[in-house]
Nucleic acid binder design. Sequence first.
DNA 1: TAATTAACATACAGGGTGTATGTATGCAAC
DNA 2: GTTGCATACATACACCCTGTATGTTAATTA
Lengths: 196, 196
Amino acid sequence: MQQKHRRSNRERSDTTRTAILDAARALFIESGYAETPTPEIVAAAGLTRGALYHHFQDKKALFRALIEREAREVASSIERSTVEGLPPREALLAGAAAYFDAMAVPGRVRLLLLDGPAVLGVGEMATIDAAHGGRTLEEGLVAAMAPQGLEKKAIKAMAFLLSAAFDRAALEIDAGAARADYAYAIDRLIDRLIAP
Amino acid sequence: MQQKHRRSNRERSDTTRTAILDAARALFIESGYAETPTPEIVAAAGLTRGALYHHFQDKKALFRALIEREAREVASSIERSTVEGLPPREALLAGAAAYFDAMAVPGRVRLLLLDGPAVLGVGEMATIDAAHGGRTLEEGLVAAMAPQGLEKKAIKAMAFLLSAAFDRAALEIDAGAARADYAYAIDRLIDRLIAP
DNA sequence: TAATTAACATACAGGGTGTATGTATGCAAC
DNA sequence: GTTGCATACATACACCCTGTATGTTAATTA
């Protein structure tokens, strides 16, 4: 009979926190934030609502924590796949592909592109993925569009628009569109944007 | 003393329906869909919840009716501002400007670009604004990109991406960004997309 | 080992949604 | 015009969900 090793409070908290986050994630991506009651979340995690409200201020704070974890994972996934020394154009194309790869994880599109902005607001979402390396695209575009001699303000706006195109493409792919079609469209879009 | 002319059931229904829709619109754009309770909506309309649930199946159906009305207004506003006989490029640029004008009406960005997709889902939103002349952009792009000899499928994808850029620009302008900056960026984006 | 605090579970209060029921007015047939 | 039915609401109710307050056990600290 294996001894049920006495766990420290720290690791106890960690495991329940992630248990709640994992259960919430599964239910949120299935039914959405508003339609997922907290009793169902904690039941799926084998806990009670007392644990939830001990670790998170309220339901929205739980959602925020989940979104932040997801954004971190996307950022690190993209970062992990970048190789140094690529020319600006190829770096952009590779970054786009890495983004689509990361967003292909089930539920990410709904969490980060649908429920996230609606529940937390666009402002907070912008803050979150700015905190987790969301500026990669802008830097890449600055490098690739340098020959055009634009103001930084203009390039920034273009980066916003391009990232919107990325997001829409991820949305469409998630909805069942062929990835190849949108990968082609995105590549073409990038090529025309950075053409001197 | 003016006689309070006895109204027919039809006009009675119409006025209360729009009263509820107007009240809901004001509250939804102020606090969002989820944070706006139905008692507050009907109170603002000088009615009770009985009227609401008589005219709409549930709260979401009310929201859907509101979104459809808003989408109709945007579509007709854009359509009203189009002039015949413009060359493809100028037609696209004018359409973009008309779209930004239409989306400048307070609350439209939140209703159509934030709460709409979150509450109704992207699929239903796509259906709604496809039903109300949402294909204008695609047709414009087909005309303007004809010289490139692309497959229709590819042009369709490009139209999706471009419309995503439009939406993001409207979002940013609504959040306080300078319209001129994004108008310039959109124009530049269009120009590069349709360049032979 | 005694005291304190963290990590939960349980119990409760308030509010919101949807539905069932009641009422008055418009409308249509005779 | 009055009899009967449908429409347009208002009122009342049951359920569920959220957040908070309180209780309990185990870990940490003195």
